[in-house]
Amino acid sequence: MQETIIEVNNLRKIYGKKNEKQYEALKAVNFSVKDGEFVGIMGASGSGKTTLLNMLATFDRPTSGSVKIKGEEIAKLKGNALADFRASRIGFIFQDFNLLENLTAAENIGLPLSLQGVSAKKIDAIITKVASELGIFELLKNYPSELSGGQKQRVACARALVHNPAILFGDEPTGALDSKSARELLELMSEVNKNMGTSILMVTHDAFSASFCKRIIFIKDGRIERELIREDNQNRSNFYQEVLDLLGTFEQ
C-alpha cells in the first residue's frame, strides 16, 4: 500500500472574529493524498480552494480539524518548528513566481539548501543537477528581471524541488503564463511527478491545467462536491473533455 502524504480531517476555516460577521470558507473538508499522486483542486473564485491550499501549506491556521503531512500534525507547529517544516518538507510554486529579484536564478534555487546548512560545494552540485533536469542551466546566472514568465516559473519550480520536499504545492502556477509556457510548465510538472516521484497538489480554475492531474477534487462553497480520476489508459485530451463536461454541469 502507498504511503499517505496528506491527510485532511474535518477541516474548517471561519473568517472573522466571534462578535463580527463571520464567513465560513471551508466546511468540514476530508480527503487524503497518497505518495506520488498528482492532485488538482478545482473550483470557482471564492469556492475556498486557495484557503484550503494555504492551510495545507501551513500559511494559515485552520479553525478546527486536522491536517497531517507525512503523519505530522501541522496545525500544531509553531515558530522555528513551523519554519523548519516549511524549509524541509514543502515546496511551493506561486502564481506570481515569488522569486527574490535581488538574487540570481542560481542563488534563488540554492536558498532552501543554504538554509539547511548544506555545504557550498554540494549546493552548487545540486543546483546544476536540478537546473539541467528542468532545462534552465543556461539561465542560472540571470536575475529574475531578465527572465520571461515561463523561465521564471521554471526557476521557481527548481527552487521548490531542490530540497526534495515531501510534497510540491502549486497555487495557480500557470496563472501568469502564456499558453505555450503554461503547457511546458505543466508537462514539466508531470515529468517531475512521474520520474522523480514527487507528490504534487495544485490549485487551479483552469480545466486545461487540471487535465494534467491524475485526480481532481472539485470544491464549491467550501465543500468537496465531486472527484474525478483519470483512468490509467485515458489520454489527456479525453480527460480534458471530461473535466470540461463536468465543469459545465458543476457550476450551475
Binding site: F59, A83, D84, R86, A87, N98, L100, L115, R159
Partner: peptide, 12 residues
C-alpha cells in the same frame, strides 16, 4: 521579500 522568505521556511 521577507514574507516570501518566511514562506520558504526561513526561521524568524
Amino acid at each position: 521579500r521577507y514574507a516570501m522568505l518566511a514562506k520558504l521556511g526561513v526561521r524568524k
